[in-house]
């Protein structure tokens, strides 16, 4: 069991100034599994996701207490290196945010900033990453075209490819399909299934069916606390907590 845990979260508390957004969060995130975070708006699930790659550091007045251990190394410890952390823990955002550059440059961006300069090597990474994001066949003939010319769904898969290009272990996804049409959503969901063979995935979603479809584990957040975490099938078939049941049966949202 121990070596299957990728990320351990212990007694995590997060404050935005006076407001406490996360309260005593404890969680084990399993290797090569998809973990879904569900809960009503403002329950802290996105905030929690962003603690895992320290994106909350960018916001003024955020205070964090507790431990987040990635492969048993505290990512908030002084010895941990922010750049390396974000290289290992990639992120895909709610709205596709490709850079205003070519498709190729978007994917090559990460490897380039991490010091890969050789064209042949970059070509290889770009192809591999785009294939990994199931986008290669659609864009292989127009790699030098602007990424903003792609459709929303393609842009999101491009962002996934961009994230894969730096070879992370963990991929965090913050409602990655909420801005996409149903067909693109299906494509991204199918992709998740393939990706988990190689990556540990944590996904925030508003869509309960999506959590049911794509995840192995599900955590239910409410008011900054984790109400329960379990195998997805358990959460959806017989939740232990009344509040979880109320939420997934749609009695409150």
């Amino acid at each position: 069991m121990v070596n299957n845990t990728k990320i351990k979260v212990r007694n995590l508390n997060l404050f935005y100034g006076e407001h406490q957004a996360l309260i005593d969060v404890n969680m084990d995130i399993m290797k090569n599994k998809v973990t879904a975070l569900i809960g009503p708006s403002g329950c802290g699930k996105s905030t929690f996701l962003r603690t895992l790659n320290r994106m909350n550091d960018l916001i003024d007045g955020v205070k964090i207490k507790g431990d987040v251990l990635l492969d048993d190394v505290d990512i908030y410890g002084n010895e941990s290196d922010l750049i390396n952390l974000r290289k290992n823990v990639g992120m895909v955002f709610q709205k596709p945010n490709p850079f205003p550059k070519t498709i190729y440059e978007n994917v090559a961006y990460g490897p380039k900033i991490h010091g890969i300069k050789k064209k042949s090597e970059l070509d290889e990474i770009v192809e591999k990453s785009l294939k990994g994001a199931a986008l290669w066949d659609e864009v292989k003939d127009r790699l030098d075209k602007p990424a903003l010319g792609l459709s929303g769904g393609q842009q999101q898969r491009l962002c996934i490819a961009r994230c894969l290009a730096v070879e992370p272990d963990v991929i965090l996804m913050d409602e990655p399909t909420s801005a996409l049409d149903p067909i693109s959503t299906v494509k991204v969901e199918n992709l998740l299934d393939e990706l988990k063979a190689k990556y540990t995935i944590v996904i925030v979603t508003h869509n309960m069916q999506q959590a049911g479809r794509v995840s192995d584990y599900t955590s239910f957040f409410l008011n900054g606390k984790i109400i329960e975490t379990d195998l997805t099938e358990n959460i959806f078939s017989n939740p232990r907590d009344k509040r979880t049941e109320d939420y997934i049966t749609g009695r409150f949202s």
Binding site: N84, R86, M91, F93, G110
Partner: peptide, 9 residues
């Protein structure tokens, strides 16, 4: 954010 999340400074 997209850039920083990729490990850029």
């Amino acid at each position: 954010e997209g850039s920083l999340a990729l490990g850029a400074t």
